[in-house]
Amino acid sequence: MKIRIKFAKYGAMKFIGHLDMMRYFQKAVRRADIDIRYSEGFSPHQIMSFAAPLGVGIESYGEYMDIEVLSMTSAEDIKLALNGVMAEGVEILSVNVMPDNVKNAMASVAAASYRIRKKSEDARTAAAGGGEDAADDTAEEFPITDLGGKLQAFWSQEHILYTKETKKSVQEIDLKQGIYELSAEPDGAVRMLVNASSGGNIKPMTVMEQFFRFAGADIPQAACQVIRLETYADMAADGEAHRFVPLADVGKYS
């Protein structure tokens, strides 16, 4: 049986990288005594796959992984069992049994939504002396007047070009078609829905950097706190451009 697990990752756990999170869950599944399916061969491994890797330092309330189990009592029992063995900062939000014909989580990922805030100054530099007053993560508004209007103007451009430099190549990329939503929230955060598919993934901070340049604001990347809110599949019917559905709900469409 294919099981889709949605989880949150926050607090200190945002510093645990993708590969270590996979190892973490492999051990968690054993601690929770879940009857997971193993591969064949000399060193069998658990049948487990993750949706979209999350960068170190980013919190998320919409992470997904798929596992296959040989037996189970109920999805709710799996959720309880896993939550009983989690570290502080990882939480199982939902567990769903998926129809067998559903594409795996990684292949399904089409988009992800993010919320970006500016960290306050004292959150960025630990107070000398450590302890109580150090590293208090509080957010403040971006120093950009009419944030919502500027975001709208930025997004309305015909092209949003940026030059991607890798070791091998320099490439000009148009972000425009990969940004599906971009707006300001009442508390001064930026919210966006962007392409997260394996072929066209857009990092939220890439959009933010282009936006800061557009808005003439000098805000370093380290000053921003990024939170992934949800990961989506695209269940568009013929003739539709997109229909983004949270990965947890994909089963209802197949």
């Binding site: 607090g11 200190a12 170190v56 939550n83 450590g130 590293a135 208090d136 706190q225």
Partner: peptide, 24 residues
């Protein structure tokens, strides 16, 4: 455990000795 609101979990959690900036 109740689900914390996105973005305001830090106050409830153990405070780290090192800032995000250093840890990154």
């Amino acid at each position: 455990m109740t689900r914390p609101c996105a973005g305001d979990t830090e106050q409830k959690m153990r405070k780290l000795a090192l800032s995000d900036e250093i840890l990154m």
